[in-house]
Amino acid sequence: MDSGSKLRKLIASYGDKEEFLRAAEEIIEEEELKRNNLLARDLRNMLYRPNSSINSFKSLKIPVDNERRLPLLEIKKFKKDWTDLVVTTKIRNSLESIIEENNKREILSVYGLKPKQTLLFFGPPGCGKTLTAQVLSGILGYPMVYIRFDGVISSYLGETAGNLRKIFDFIRDGRWIIFFDEFDVIGKQRDDPFEHGEMKRVVNNFLQMIDNHSSESIIICATNHQHLLDPALWRRFDDIILFDIPNKENRIKLIKRNLRSVRTTSMDYHLLADNMKGMSPADIEMVCLNAIKRNILDNKGTISMDDINKQLSNQKKRITYQKNYIKLKD
């Protein structure tokens, strides 16, 4: 029986559990004969152990911190795709390569190779690191495991490393996007004189966990303070991606994307992009969203350049306040 006939048999058997299982087994056995052992294993796991399915993750037991009983992670599902993301061509190419490698992992495995699974996203805040992780989650269909550092970091000796071990034990089965935001919290340099011995042990433990990581999940670590990271951590990542302030072309795309749901008039996107030079995607989004909200509250039909420029002025003041506060704090 050819592959087409087996698939027709599988679909036709929907509703009859026993017949469905037999048809599915025939397909799996055929993949095994083709030496697609990784694919065959995945299909069999999905068939008989569906606990890693995106539809059943809510029933999973979330690991908690022993000290305060706080959850160590959250599981989220995203339906985002490329239309939600504005990045440079270089970043887009890197992400497409990561997606292709993980979608074709069984081909790579034939040659003893693995796809890129450990990624470092770094750069200024508000430049798309979290959004990119969500887009990867949506495109690959992997639920996101968002690590909660308020639960991971413990005052008890050895407990923080233990919490990290619980997380790695949890992700051992299934395919996930594991997102460590503000990664510098646990990835600081071990020779930092201001860090105590416990955090140095945490870095050592994390290095060992990364080295021994054998699941099919993708680990993404994101930081705004890459200079704080221990040098040994950089070598553990399969790919390192810088998310920087957008250029003019991407600033125009961001403005248009954020205003796509409203009517606009007399909009000079090139001038707006020039006036938004140095702003992050998050800053540009806030300018546009504030203009939209003001437009709705004032019951206006369209958004003009003046509306955008008023909110742009407010956002620039906010950025200045923030920079001055950081200087005073330092």
Rank of each mutant, 00 (worst) to 15 (best):
D191F: 08
I98S: 00
G123L: 13
V152N: 03
K90M: 08
Q117A: 12
S97N: 10
P115E: 06
D169P: 05
L108H: 09
R92S: 10
D191V: 14
D150I: 08
R105H: 09
E106P: 02
G158L: 11
I171R: 01
T88R: 12
F149H: 15
F194C: 12
L164K: 10
L131S: 05
V152C: 10
E198T: 10
K114P: 02
D181G: 03
L120H: 04
V152E: 02
R172C: 04
P115C: 11
I147P: 04
N102G: 11
G126D: 05
F149K: 11
E182I: 10
W82C: 09
V152M: 07
M199I: 15
R175W: 05
K90E: 15
V135I: 11
L120A: 03
V86K: 02
G123Q: 09
E101C: 10
L140T: 06
L140D: 05
I107Q: 11
G174C: 08
L131M: 14
D173Y: 14
N163G: 05
R201V: 02
R148P: 01
F122N: 03
V110L: 13
S137C: 12
P124H: 09
V152A: 04
G158M: 09
G141T: 12
L140W: 01
D81A: 12
F194W: 10
G128D: 01
K166S: 11
F180C: 03
E106S: 14
L113S: 03
G151N: 09
K104H: 14
E182K: 09
K116N: 13
T118Y: 01
P125D: 03
I147E: 02
D81L: 11
F194V: 13
W176L: 10
R105M: 14
L140Y: 03
E96V: 15
S154L: 12
I153R: 05
R190W: 05
G128N: 02
A161L: 12
Q117E: 14
K116S: 14
K129I: 04
G138W: 01
F122L: 09
Y142D: 03
Y142E: 05
G128V: 04
